[in-house]
C-alpha cells in the first residue's frame, strides 16, 4: 500500500489544486497587490502608489455612503430574516397543539415548507427581474394591490424614489432568504425531543415563552450559523443591487460591492477598485469573527 500512495495523491490532488490555485487563490492574492497601484487597466503600465488608494478611500464619501448601506443591511437583514424564519418554523413544527397537551406540527406543514423554500431555487437574476416588475410603478403587482384596495395614495415609484428604494431592496433580500431558514430551523427543531415541548406546554408556557425560552436556546448553534451566513450576504449584496438599481437612485442603494464593480469596470480604475476590495475583505473577515464571538454561548447537549 505504501508505495502506491504517492501516485494516487499526485493524480488526485494536483489537478484540483492547479485549477483552484490559478482561478481562486491567485486572484484573491493579486487583489492585494493591485490595490497598491494606480493601474488603469488599458495599458500594462502602472506605478506602485503604496497606501495612496487607501488614503483616498478614507475621504471618499461615495464609499462611506455605500458602506453605510451595508451596515444597515448587516443590522437589519439577519434580525428580520431570523426572527421571521423562527416564527414561521415554530408555527409549522410545534404550532399545532392537540387538545391532549401534545405538541405537533401544524396541518399541511409539508406543503408550506415546499412553497416557502421555492425562492431558494431561483437565481438572483430571476429574483431581481421579478421584483423589479413587482415594484414597477405602472404595471407592478404592489401598486396594483394598493390601487385595488383603494390606497392609491400609497402607490409609489418604489425603486425610483431614494426614500423607498433601499427598503424595497431589503424586503426582497428578506423574502428570498426566509424560506431557506424556515427549513433549516425546522430540521433543527425536529431534533429537539418532543417531551421538552410537551413538558413546557403542560407547565403552561405560552407560544412566545416556548419560543424564547426553549426553542431559541436549543437552536442556538443553528441560529449562529444563520447569523454568519446572513452577515456575509449583507456585506455583499452586490448581485441584487446590480440587477435592480445599480446603486441608484442618487446612490440611495449603493453598496461596497457595487462601488468596487463600478470603479473597476465602469471607470477602469482597477487599482482603486481593488483597494475597495481589500477593505471589504477585512470587513467581511472581522464581521464573521465578531459574529462567531458575540453569539458564542454554552452549547446545550441534547441527550
Amino acid at each position: 500500500m505504501r508505495h502506491g500512495k504517492y501516485p494516487l495523491l499526485l493524480a488526485f490532488l494536483l489537478p484540483p489544486l492547479a485549477i483552484y490555485g490559478y482561478f481562486v487563490v491567485s486572484p484573491y492574492a493579486q487583489t492585494f497587490l493591485v490595490a497598491a497601484t494606480d493601474w488603469q487597466g488599458l495599458s500594462p503600465d502602472y506605478n506602485f502608489v503604496g497606501l495612496d488608494n487607501f488614503k483616498r478611500l478614507w475621504h471618499d464619501e461615495y464609499v462611506w455612503n455605500a458602506l453605510l448601506h451595508n451596515v444597515w443591511l448587516l443590522l437589519l437583514l439577519p434580525v428580520l430574516t431570523i426572527a421571521l424564519s423562527l416564527f414561521l418554523a415554530t408555527m409549522l413544527n410545534v404550532g399545532g397543539r392537540g387538545g391532549r397537551g401534545t405538541v405537533r406540527g401544524v396541518r399541511g406543514s409539508g406543503i408550506y415548507k415546499v412553497v416557502y423554500f421555492a425562492p431558494q431555487m431561483l437565481s438572483v437574476s430571476i429574483i431581481g427581474v421579478l421584483w423589479t416588475q413587482i415594484y414597477d410603478p405602472r404595471g407592478g403587482l404592489l401598486n396594483g394591490l394598493l390601487r385595488a384596495v383603494g390606497l392609491d395614495g400609497l402607490a409609489q415609484v418604489w425603486l425610483g424614489d431614494p426614500n423607498f428604494a433601499f427598503w424595497a431592496l431589503l424586503a426582497v433580500m428578506v423574502w428570498s432568504n426566509v424560506g431557506f431558514y424556515v427549513v433549516l430551523f425546522g430540521a433543527a427543531m425536529q431534533a429537539v425531543p418532543r417531551d421538552i415541548y410537551e413538558a413546557a406546554a403542560l407547565d403552561g408556557a405560552g407560544r412566545t415563552r416556548t419560543l424564547l425560552r426553549i426553542t431559541v436556546p436549543l437552536l442556538w448553534d443553528t441560529i449562529q450559523v444563520a447569523w454568519v451566513y446572513l452577515a456575509i450576504i449583507a456585506m455583499d449584496g452586490f448581485a441584487i443591487v446590480q440587477i435592480m438599481t445599480r446603486g441608484g437612485p442618487d446612490f440611495s442603494t449603493d453598496v461596497v460591492g457595487e462601488r468596487l464593480y463600478d470603479t473597476s469596470f465602469g471607470e477602469s480604475k482597477f487599482g482603486y477598485g481593488s483597494a475597495i476590495g481589500v477593505v471589504m475583505f477585512f470587513l467581511t473577515l472581522s464581521i464573521t469573527v465578531l459574529a462567531l464571538r458575540v453569539t458564542r454561548r454554552e452549547r446545550i447537549e441534547l441527550s
Partner: peptide, 28 residues
C-alpha cells in the same frame, strides 16, 4: 494545509476577486 486552503475559499464574496480574475482569465 491543503484542506484549509480549500475550505477558506468559502468565506469570501466572489466580488473581491473580480478584478484580478478578469485579467487572469483574459491572459489565459
Amino acid at each position: 494545509l491543503i484542506y484549509f486552503a480549500f475550505v477558506g475559499g468559502m468565506m469570501f464574496p466572489v466580488v473581491l476577486a473580480f478584478v484580478p480574475l478578469f485579467f487572469v482569465v483574459r491572459n489565459a
